[in-house]
């Protein structure tokens, strides 16, 4: 047993730790949610990660995106994620893709992974992701944030959870910043996404399959909506 994982034990059994090291996860988005998700997956010891983002860091990211810092403004988010994660856990193979997710490339990007994490910032890309996950028979861990609110759900192939959450005519790829994006909401939601990811990978119970956990940190509201 690698000493670096000793504090995982209790939540994860030794044989489950070994299983984690054989799994691959594709994280789409390396921003507020993605940064937290990527770091936690690397620290807990998932075997392979593909991190995908076409964007570069800017000054407005610094309040919440844990992969951003004053020295990497203007640099590619995905490449920065990969290089920073090597410093945290060199056992994990992290591959960066500086690609924008489209209907044409999504299946080829996620193909072969055991799980996909939705850490994107717009609805149109989420529709593309869920459809591609269905085609590739991969479960999708959805997360989204806005202001004090966040949500997490798990969409298996066929669940079409994203399609049930957002209106069918919501095809905008624009980012809604009207409610603000504080660091604490991104931290909470990304942590729950990782918890769900580990439960799915290890076949544990009480996963948010076809459900949506709605969180409002302003009033300590945590409620699960069934679909």
């Amino acid at each position: 047993m690698n000493e670096r994982y000793l504090r995982n034990i209790g939540v994860i059994a030794e044989d489950e730790q070994e299983l984690l090291s054989q799994k691959s996860v594709c994280v789409i988005g390396c921003g507020g949610l993605g940064g937290g998700v990527i770091e936690a997956l690397v620290r807990i010891g998932v075997g392979k990660l593909t991190v995908v983002d076409s964007d570069v860091f800017d000054l407005t990211n610094l309040n919440r995106q844990v992969l951003s810092n004053e020295g990497n403004i203007g640099k590619a988010k995905a490449a920065e994620a990969a290089s920073q994660m090597k410093l945290i856990n060199s056992n994990v193979e992290v591959t960066s893709r500086g690609a924008e997710i489209t209907e044409d490339n999504c299946c080829s990007i996620i193909k072969g992974h055991d799980l996909v994490i939705d850490a994107v910032d717009n609805v149109k890309t989420r529709f593309i992701l869920e459809e591609a996950c269905e085609k590739e028979n991969i479960t999708l861990i959805h997360g989204a944030i806005g202001g004090w609110s966040g949500q997490v759900g798990v969409s298996r192939p066929g669940d079409k959870l994203i399609r049930k959450i957002y209106p069918a005519d919501e095809e905008s790829s624009s980012v809604d910043t009207s409610a603000g994006n504080p660091p604490f909401t991104a931290a909470v939601v990304s942590a729950i996404q990782v918890a769900e990811a580990i439960k799915v990978i290890l076949g544990k119970e009480d996963v948010l399959y076809n459900k949506l956990l709605m969180i409002d940190l302003s009033e300590h509201s945590y409620e699960t909506i069934e679909f």
Binding site: G29, G31, G32, L33, G34, D118, A119, V120, D121, N122, V123, R126, G143, A144, I145, G146, S149, G150, Q151, K164, Y166, V175, D176, T177, A179, N181, L212, M214, E223, I225, E226, F227
Partner: peptide, 24 residues
């Protein structure tokens, strides 16, 4: 339970309306 906006309601129902959350 998630419902459609056009679905009927019944006596005693508890309706919640959620804002759209889509950032990342």
């Amino acid at each position: 339970m998630r419902v459609m906006i056009s679905d009927p309601v019944n006596e005693g129902d508890y309706i919640k309306a959620f804002s759209k959350v889509s950032g990342g």
